[in-house]
Amino acid sequence: MGNLRTGHIVEAAIWLGFCLFLYIYSFDFEQEIEIYKFGASAWPRTILLLIAIAAIGQLIYNWKKGDGSATSMIAQAHDDSTDGSDHNSLKWYLWTFFLLALPFIYMNLPEGIAAIMSLEQPGLHVAKLVVAAVVVVVYVFAIRGNHVGGILALPILFGAFLQDFGFYAMAPIFILGVMFLFGERRYKRMLVVGGGIFALLLMFFVSLLYVGLPTGNVGWFYDFGTSMVNILQ
């Protein structure tokens, strides 16, 4: 095994599996192009081959030198790897990936429910509200003891809610949430600073530059978003 650790083998396996997955899907676009004999798949497959070679090269490197030092001093200076960290266990990864999956559950589940129950648009909006509420509750419980995972997932959750509930309703909650996860507990200061950040953003981008931000499309949130735009512009 030389200097190999399980993590090195898992890392190489992830790369090779990733390459295999994309290689299989590359047959979808394996079409001839009249003026270009290599076709549309040659370039992507070459990249996949090079990724596989580099992943094996990295594995051989690990086998010979373990984690080794970086090949250059510049690389050493940029090394953010966290081998001794608490956030490196399998449990932490699984927990974090569960948190990261929550936004995608929200993005797909309401449509699925609506399709199964043959819901019209108002019903779909109710489904979205219910699923969003459940996802938020699960998120709040799941981040206990995993603040880093919570910080990674919160912006994606915010992005997932943006289209349906709008920037105007979601941004203040998001700002306060990020402050909380970063350890701020002085609630009055959070409200004042958070309100200030939100007001500055709206004044600069919406009132001054007329940037169109998402107003949302779910019931009351849409009304709130559009009325905010009307007030600010």
Partner: peptide
Amino acid sequence: VGAKTFWKGWL
């Protein structure tokens, strides 16, 4: 530039 090893740089 930037990666821990040459192979990770290429990856």
